[in-house]
Design a protein around this nucleic acid. Structure first.
Lengths: 227, 227
DNA sequence: TGGCGGCATGTTGTTGAACAATCTTGCTAT
DNA sequence: ATAGCAAGATTGTTCAACAACATGCCGCCA
């Protein structure tokens, strides 16, 4: 019991589902899964409660839990939400930076170091996406894309925003499981990510915000065109 | 077992906590609470997992679960998020209405009816707030305020937005448990709610969006001035 | 007197078996 | 073919037990 069991069960199941090991609509049998993961039904059920609240699974009383199946409508809703939060996070980052410049010079150093670290994570995610495209590894491209958007959200310095974006990105992965275009939809936008990252590095955060909104509009149209 | 037990335990505990029956920092003892609510420890633990994910309680491994204590920083973060989402929901509502006007006339009727219902819920919440103020019932004012903001979010027609706002409002109630100004902070803004509702009724959704953002800025300053 | 290690105690973490409640399936009788 | 029913399977919940961990107390040593 190095790590509490429920936590690792949650991680295992989430990864299995988001990696496509189980298809949307599949039922998760308590006794079978319990035997497979070597945990009791009670522990498994605690994990189910967490995943249900993450919207990864759906709980139908007395019927079991199922891998969530997202509708086209939900896809539109998630994108609409992302258009509010992600560009907003960049505007938040902009005012945060402005505010930092009016701090006593003693406190500007630590802030600047934290800022550079956050920006470098954005740049790193873009790099991973690019090398993923070159290697033809679309799974890696998808992972890198998630890291990019999470890193951008983190620029806001706002944990509430970050955890909301993380939630939305999880639901996006659920979406890509059923979308035919999932294979190349990420790859197609690696260049967009780079452009946004360039603006961030240049300190042009408001322009980055606009570019992000534009990207989200196009990505939504692209994805919804085939599902 | 008319209703599955876990669900009602979650509701009971959430209500108890948000009504102030337990103070932030209090520990929730598994065996004591289990005896009190007449459920087993396992059932109670499932409920804890849900409430933890709602950020109502905090789980410290091997130590127990505690009523969440929000910091001033988290308060700022929640307000920053609300400033992104709630005005955004009103802008979403604006484009949704514009789009509906270009629908075939056959489908405009149902949309218009649903819209009127949603608007009337906003107006009703304002009325409840006003009568709460007249009666001096601050608890009712707080409840009405929550209903108002949730109803405004619902105008977007976006469930993802609605559930995010619901989550944020829950955390707000946790905030008001410790803020001295909680008593009158809601009452002070009932007039703001009415003004926003008037704009919504008049179809001036973009102006309502701006008024909402302004309101959230002032409410944040007011609340943070004493905590 | 003032820490410091270590045991006693209480609480959480997890299990497995048990049973009730509910859903599903397939059969039967019409 | 279909309505209704019986049998089987699965979920919902409880209980008792024990392992793992945290905390506080007590005496020990300096």
């Amino acid at each position: 019991m190095a790590q509490p069991a429920v936590g690792s069960v949650v991680e295992t199941l989430r990864q299995r589902i988001l990696d496509g090991a189980m298809a949307p609509g599949d039922r998760l049998d308590e006794v079978r899964l319990g035997g497979e993961l070597e945990v009791s039904r009670n522990t498994l059920r605690e994990a189910f409660r967490v995943l249900e609240h993450e919207h990864v699974i759906e709980h139908r009383p007395h019927r079991g839990v199922f891998v969530r199946r997202l509708t086209a409508r939900e896809a539109r809703e998630v994108y609409a939400m992302r258009r509010l939060v992600e560009p907003g996070a960049l505007r938040e980052a902009a005012v945060r930076r402005l505010a930092a410049q009016q701090l006593p010079t003693a406190e500007q150093g630590p802030f600047e170091r934290a800022w550079e670290r956050a920006v470098s994570e954005v740049v790193r995610a873009v790099g991973q996406g690019q090398s993923g495209v070159r290697a033809g590894d679309f799974g890696a491209v998808g992972t890198a894309n998630g890291r990019f958007h999470l890193a951008v959200a983190a620029l806001s310095g706002n944990d509430v925003i970050v955890r909301t974006v993380r939630q939305l990105l999880t639901e996006m992965r659920l979406l890509f499981l059923v979308a035919d275009s999932a294979r190349d939809v990420h790859a197609r936008y690696v260049e967009d990510n780079r452009r946004i990252a360039d603006l961030i590095v240049a300190g042009e955060l408001v322009r980055a915000s606009v570019a992000m909104e534009d990207y989200l509009f196009r990505a939504e149209r692209h994805l919804l065109s085939d599902c």
